[in-house]
Design a protein around this nucleic acid. Structure first.
Length: 488
RNA sequence: GGCGGCGUGGCCAAGUGGUAAGGCAAGAGUCUGCAAAACUCUGAUCAGCGGUUCGAUUCCGCUCGCCGCCUCCA
């Protein structure tokens, strides 16, 4: 069974054939760390986390690199804008590196909370200035870049394939309509590899062209090729980076190395708010912290996984809450399985156990088929729901058999294992060893049982309602009461 | 103006040339002291109009609506 991925370059699903068998080298454009990460970042990095996790689950040795942009990302037009980091730092009257350090840590903290695995390497742009200068020099020597007043620009006309990733033609764009040609630039689409900086500019480095700082696009080329090799397997990013950022990456990289840069390009859909893209510059964003606070990290993650990575995702709190209830269904299935396995068991049940095992296998295959088809996580989740239903059918019974308990255990294990491939954890949070809550709840429930036996239902219900107010949901089952923590 | 995408039951969301996964919500039933959870059952002809085809929601064309990119953004 082959794993197929939609490649933006060819606009088709292609089989993943890594350059080195068994190994996948993958790069994803990381954040510019000048503000808090929001739900848009969550979607992107959760999605690519799912990609990495699934590739590893399939046995690939994945080397995952994701940059941290801490210099060179301009606020506006590539020629007239101001460095985002610099501007924010000036507004707050702190050093740029203090700002960067702070938001980089926030970024990792938030994504850790969403159970996103950290990249193997998180290279920072400011730590790779020499690599960028080397690459720029190579481009100048090859006739693909030119110097103008201390700036270095990439000459897009020197790279005939320019536009092949985003499938645009230069002459069809409205480029330069507003600003026209900046001094020294030969073509409106030429982009800065290196920007000259005057002494008032805090972040600047010496270069063969004078003091300055790198353009935004060059860092991704320099750092990906440094750690993954000049040609590597997968490059991911949000679609909003397709043009010009990724296009420029392809141009400057392939102009320098004369062979393919990234082989498969994956692009993630954007998050929309009220029909508009959520973005830092628009200010219409919900931060990851706010999202987690409102819905919980796992539910937020589930929400992201419940739509396809390439689809746009319309964020509303109602939709996340709804996804949260779906997530709860899987949690309850796992919890019911655990309870079922505690029941006194009669011998036998082999036939039913065999049937359940067949269902486990069926749904596992469905999960793999879905993920193999361009990481179709909604379809993969549907397989998990199918498995959960099979489990519930069995565990709803008041009596258990030895063989079925065994099979239910396997089903539960499978559900947890495949959930983990998506970075989802369906287990109830384990209470701390010194947590009195479980013991106190058990105590109340045993008192309540006595009341129920005395048919004092008013008092029994009172206990149940009061517990519910505290976030404890009580459920009476034939074999006795059970409880769980409420969602959120 | 160019390029790309989207419009699937009340809501979220997959998908296929042969009469539409899954989830949430809703209704009915089973279970329960009552609930809750679970289980069973019920519901869409896929924006509109044409065309290709034995047959299209899925392919093509047009129309309408929405979105993204073309300037920063995951």
């Amino acid at each position: 069974m082959a794993l197929r991925i939609f490649n933006t370059l060819t606009r088709q699903k292609e089989e993943l054939v890594p350059l080195q068998p068994g190994r996948v080298n993958m790069y994803v454009c990381g954040p510019t760390v000048y503000d808090l990460p929001h739900i848009g970042h969550a979607k992107s990095y959760v999605s690519f986390d799912g990609v990495v996790r699934y590739l590893r689950h399939r046995g690939y040795d994945v080397l995952y690199v994701q940059n941290i942009t801490d210099v060179g990302h301009l606020t506006d037009d590539a020629d007239e804008g101001e460095d985002k980091v610099l501007r924010r730092a000036r507004e707050r009257r702190i050093q740029p590196m203090v700002l960067v350090e702070y938001y980089m840590r926030e970024y990792f903290r938030c994504l850790d909370a969403l159970n996103v695995l950290r990249p193997d390497i998180s290279p920072r742009a400011t730590g790779h200035i020499p690599e960028m200068i080397d690459l720029i020099q190579r481009l100048i020597e090859e006739g693909h870049a030119y110097v103008a007043e201390g700036n270095v620009y990439f000459d897009v006309t020197s790279f005939p394939q320019y536009g092949k990733l985003s499938h645009r033609r230069l002459d069809e764009q409205e480029m330069g309509r507003r600003v026209g040609l900046t001094a020294g630039k030969r073509h409106p689409a030429d982009f800065a590899l290196w920007k000259a900086a005057d002494p008032s500019h805090i972040m600047r480095w010496n270069s063969p062209w004078g003091p300055g700082y790198p353009g935004w696009h060059i860092e991704c080329s320099a750092m990906s090729m440094k750690y993954l090799g000049e040609t590597f397997d997968i490059h991911g990013a949000g679609v909003d980076n397709l043009f010009p950022h990724n296009e420029d990456e392809v141009a400057q990289s392939e102009a320098a190395i004369h062979r393919p840069f990234a082989r498969i390009w994956m692009h993630n859909g954007t998050v929309l708010v009220d029909g508009e893209k959520m973005s830092k510059s628009k200010g219409n964003f919900v931060t990851i912290d706010e999202g987690i606070q409102r819905h919980g990290a796992m539910r937020l993650r589930f929400y992201v996984m419940n739509s396809h990575y390439r689809s746009p995702l319309g964020y509303t709190d109602a939709a996340v809450a709804e996804a949260g209830r779906a997530f709860e269904r899987l949690q309850i299935a796992v919890q019911s399985a655990a309870r079922y396995r505690q029941l006194p068991a009669a011998p036998g049940g082999d036939a039913e156990a065999g049937a359940l095992r067949a269902q486990i296998e069926r749904h596992r295959q469905a999960f793999y088929e879905a993920m193999d088809d361009d990481f179709n996580t909604p379809a993969a989740l549907a397989a998990l729901f199918g498995l959960a239903t099979e489990m519930n059918r069995v565990t709803a019974a008041p009596s258990a058999s030895v063989a079925l308990q065994e099979a239910v255990g396997q089903a539960s294990q499978t559900l947890l294992e495949l959930g983990e491939v998506l970075g989802l954890d369906f287990r109830p949070p384990a209470p701390a060893a010194d947590d009195l809550v479980p013991r106190l709840v058990e105590l109340l429930l045993s008192l309540r049982q006595s009341l129920r036996q005395q048919k004092n239902y008013a008092a029994a219900d009172e206990i149940r309602f009061r517990l519910q107010e505290l976030g404890i949901i009580v459920e009476d089952r034939p074999e006795g009461p059970t409880w769980r923590r409420a969602a959120g």
